[in-house]
Amino acid sequence: MTRSKDSVEEFERALLTIDRARASDILELLNEGMSPIEVVEQTIVPALEWIGDAWESGDVALSQVYMSGRICEELVDTFLPPADEKRKRQPVTAIAALEDHHALGKRIVYSSLRASGYELTDYGHGITADKLVERSVADGIEVLLVSTLMLRSALKVEALAAGLKKAGSGARIIVGGAPFLFDERLWREVGASAMGRDASDAMRLMTELNGAL
């Protein structure tokens, strides 16, 4: 247990200083004694959660969150490839940047979830509410992660929620992105099921839903 706690801290340090080689060495060592899923859940998830939370409180910068997610995603792909059956595919999840051409928030959340062992579909950016409804229904999406950076895009979640309902989809919409951080009430107003303040919230919300659905 202590060994695992130390290694999480060491791993965090490697990520925050963008030391890919060191991060890789730590995981390799851990991989000798644990299953891939254990490595993910006991080292990667806590490290990424800690980093995400530290961004939220202003102690870590976004560039570090982004690079950490990227490094972890790459490393996890080497020992838990996308097609591996141990990857979590439930609930059926997709992510998109709704009516928004700013894709970094989506990229960060996507990488963090993939690094935590999830597989999810990426619907890309600049996609309209109608198109997103269409695709979500066709793919039987249960959880739709929506990232927006512009206020006008955040307000489009309302049409998305209405569209999904009308189409008979029970998909839950989890929103995130700058407008939701600046206005704490916005996510309810536009009819989302939940709001995540950062990528670690996305990871936690997915775990909660995984249990609930």
């Binding site: 202003g58 870590v60 910068a61 976004l62 560039s63 570090q64």
Partner: peptide, 9 residues
Amino acid sequence: SGTIIPREL
């Protein structure tokens, strides 16, 4: 800004 990059950078 501190939101985007760390001070050292």
